[in-house]
């Protein structure tokens, strides 16, 4: 399954400045592993102790995967996966 992954500004150092990259996989976890293989260093920015980092939002199309199984959320051919660091603070 090939999907397009939209990369936020702060992580574009890992993708040579690209805003969007291709990745393959049938779940968010597989997509992230494939991203890591192609653009080393991304995974630790997204995943912590086997779950999505609390302050990183990942969307499949327009759905926040936190409400769709987290890392196990399914992705299909042609989907768009969007990564957005939460805008948050104290």
């Amino acid at each position: 399954m090939a999907v397009t992954v939209s990369i936020p500004t702060i992580l574009r150092t890992h993708t040579g400045g690209e805003k969007a990259v291709e990745a393959t996989g049938s779940t968010v976890a597989e997509i992230i592993d494939d991203l890591e293989a192609r653009h080393g260093g991304l995974k630790t920015r997204l995943v912590k102790e086997g779950t999505l980092h609390r302050f990183v939002n990942v969307y499949v199309n327009d759905e926040d995967v936190r409400f769709a199984g987290g890392l196990e959320a399914k992705v299909s051919d042609g989907d768009t996966v969007t990564i957005l660091p939460a805008v948050a603070g104290g």
Binding site: N57, D62, T82, L84, A86, V87, A88, G89, G90
Partner: peptide, 23 residues
């Protein structure tokens, strides 16, 4: 934006609103 945390000591953009605005 909506502060999804609704807290006097924390803020976090509502994730759906955040996505829509960035798009």
């Amino acid at each position: 934006m909506t502060n999804a945390a609704r807290s006097p000591t924390f803020y976090e953009f509502d994730s759906a609103e955040h996505f829509r605005l960035w798009r």
